[in-house]
Design a protein around this nucleic acid. Structure first.
Length: 562
RNA sequence: UGUCCGAUGGUGUAAUUGGCAACACAUCUGAUUUUGGUUCAGAAGAGUCCAGGUUCGAGCCCUGGUCGGACAACCA
């Protein structure tokens, strides 16, 4: 018995905080988290980290996790994004507590808290323009100046604020500010804006409101209203924490209060992660859309062939801390390969076909050969593939003048065809221009797989029977950028590093007949090549495959060395 | 010349709270293999940003530096 080791896994800094809180009996021993996206774009792998963290912590500590849309800016937010976000979170395999929540659900409550602050003389209406306010704000090293409207009476502030709400003023004419400290070394405490006027319909509240609360006046209170115990966010909100707490101080009358904890966002090598930049790639048509398989968006990864399990595994592996980090994109690839190795059916697919005629094989004869679906999982069983006189192999599995250690086909050499026979290359056929068009081989009828034949040869090739082959389109994806840190160059735009070879389309691939009618998102291992996933563009009889990730190729590595 | 945060092999994360730095990925050997995949066995690689201090003992504590990041949207 080694039960002791089971729970030995060390805790990350957030789990440490939670366990301390639990030990001290805070929050009645409850853990309640939330994932709070703004519905203004699609989710990406960085969000996946946050999702796995928040939902994962709730699972681990037997708690709950809300999905809450932070929808306080009607200018940028849309229903479409709400739907895609819900879909992505569910696809990752998480279940939020109850119905999805919206910050806009709390607009009434927030409004009355705002009035309460005015009554306590902790908030005031400012008539200045955005420019004037910015000018008074000071800089990180110099204190700001107080607004001339800062000392308006409670009555006047109340009247003005109500008029703002009633729609009496134009956008920008007035705002509501918290009265804190214009000389605070923390810029966020210099009388931050609580409400602004926006004559814009909201995706959920319609035209009920023409004033909308700012993030800082919304987030902590939303956490409080939902009973959130641990409010996890990224590092850039660290400076907001005093404000988060200040607003809670003004409204809280119980012992409970949510606690904001910041962690470092995910950075991935060879990719960009900002919503703005990803949007730019979409809008400038450098990719086909948010779900382009080269995008680090959840929808892109899904279409590429990543599984939810692989993304969750990745998220576990990268851990969580407060220091800036860049994760090697190879780790993400490792996570899918490991998952797909267990799950993907092994199939025969020839991407760049070279025809072979087996001259001593009876013309017109067809054999049904059995082949195993997945050597890693016997329960996946086996299937039948047809074999005949004419087959295709991979062009680069043949070399006329092979280097040392090349174990594949060459004139006079033998290889095994996976799940079939050993063949020998007898003759090379060329066209007028000297290009190799076909190989003539002979086979050894005694070497059929499964027949008990013990003859060994160095190489094993994948193949497809020519008369049975299905034509397929195969999309070979590679990393979108060819620079490790496309964002990290001062005088160069990240788009300068776009990898021109990030997509290579092969339209003449030959695949085994079982792949005739595939369903989008079906995963396969093309034997000896890589993991592939059926694309949504597939039509009956006309499959399209996306390469998720190539198999490790130690021959390529060896060949490159010499 | 502000405030806050951070600094551990190539990368990322640990070190059960002061007891001679561990795990994963990547890399390199070798074995197995009807996938040059997988798997297995093994190797190499940091003395923990720097300088002091406390201590029998410091990656963990203290002091002072250095370097990196965040913050000046009516964005979140």
């Amino acid at each position: 018995m080694k039960v002791e080791n089971e729970d030995k896994k060390s805790l990350n800094f957030i789990e440490n905080i939670i366990e301390e809180d639990l030990k001290e009996g805070k929050n009645k021993g409850e853990v309640y988290t939330r994932f709070p996206p703004e519905p203004n774009g699609y989710l990406h792998i960085g969000h996946a980290k946050s999702i796995c963290l928040n939902f994962g912590l709730a699972e681990k500590y037997n708690g709950k996790c809300n999905l809450r849309f932070d929808d306080t800016n009607p200018e940028k937010e849309e229903e479409e994004y709400v739907n895609s976000i819900k879909k992505d979170v569910q696809w990752l395999g998480f279940k939020w507590e109850g119905e999805p929540k919206y910050a806009s659900d709390y607009f009434d409550q927030l409004y009355s808290w705002a009035e309460k602050l005015i009554e306590k003389s902790k908030a005031y209406v400012d008539d200045q323009t955005a420019e004037e306010i910015a000018a008074q704000k000071g800089t990180p090293t110099e204190p700001g100046q107080e607004s001339p409207y800062r000392s308006r009476s409670v009555e006047e502030n109340l009247k003005l604020f109500r008029e703002m709400k009633a729609g009496k003023y134009k956008e920008g004419e007035k705002i509501l500010r918290a009265k804190i400290d214009m000389s605070s070394p923390n810029m966020h405490m210099r009388d931050p804006i609580m409400y602004r006027i926006m004559h814009k319909p909201h995706h959920r509240t319609g035209d009920k409101w023409c004033i909308y609360p700012m993030y800082d006046f919304t987030h902590g209170q939303s956490d409080y209203l939902e009973g959130i115990t641990h409010s996890l966010c990224t590092l850039e909100f660290e400076v907001h924490r005093p404000l988060y707490n200040w607003f809670l101080d003004q409204i809280i009358d119980t012992g409970y209060r949510p606690r904001q904890i910041e962690f470092a966002r995910l950075n991935l090598s060879y990719t960009v992660m900002s919503k703005r930049k990803l949007l730019e790639l979409v809008e400038k048509k450098r990719v086909t859309g948010w779900d382009d398989p080269r995008m680090p968006s959840i929808s892109g990864l899904r279409r590429r062939g990543y599984t939810p399990e692989s993304i969750r595994d990745f998220s576990d592996r990268i851990g969580v801390a407060k220091r800036d980090n860049v994760i090697d994109v190879g780790l993400l690839e490792h996570s899918v390969k490991e998952d797909l190795n267990k799950k993907a059916t092994r199939v025969m697919a020839v991407l760049d076909p070279l025809k072979i005629t087996i001259t001593n094989y009876p013309e017109g004869n067809i054999e049904n050969l059995e082949t195993i679906n997945n050597p890693e999982d016997e329960s996946m069983g086996s299937r039948i593939i047809p074999f005949s006189r004419e087959i295709y192999i991979e062009k680069n599995d043949f070399m006329e003048d092979p280097p040392r250690k090349f174990f594949r086909l060459a004139p006079g050499r033998e290889v095994r065809l996976k799940s079939a026979y050993i063949i020998k290359c007898e003759e090379v056929i060329r066209d007028e221009k000297g290009n190799i068009t076909e190989l003539l081989c002979t086979y050894d009828p005694e070497t059929r797989s499964g027949s008990g034949s013990t003859r060994k040869v160095k190489g094993t090739l994948h193949w497809v029977s020519a008369p049975h082959a299905i034509n397929a389109e195969v999309r070979l994806y590679d990393r979108l950028f060819n620079d490790e840190d496309p964002d990290g160059h001062k005088d160069k735009d990240f788009k300068d590093f776009l990898n021109p070879a990030s997509l290579k389309i092969l339209s003449n691939a030959k695949v085994e007949p079982s792949l005739k009618d595939v369903k989008a998102l079906d995963h396969f291992q093309f034997q000896r090549i890589g993991y592939f996933c059926a694309d949504q563009d597939s039509l009956p009889g006309k499959p399209v495959f996306n390469r998720t990730v190539p198999l490790r190729d130690s021959w390529a590595k060896l060949a490159k060395k010499s």
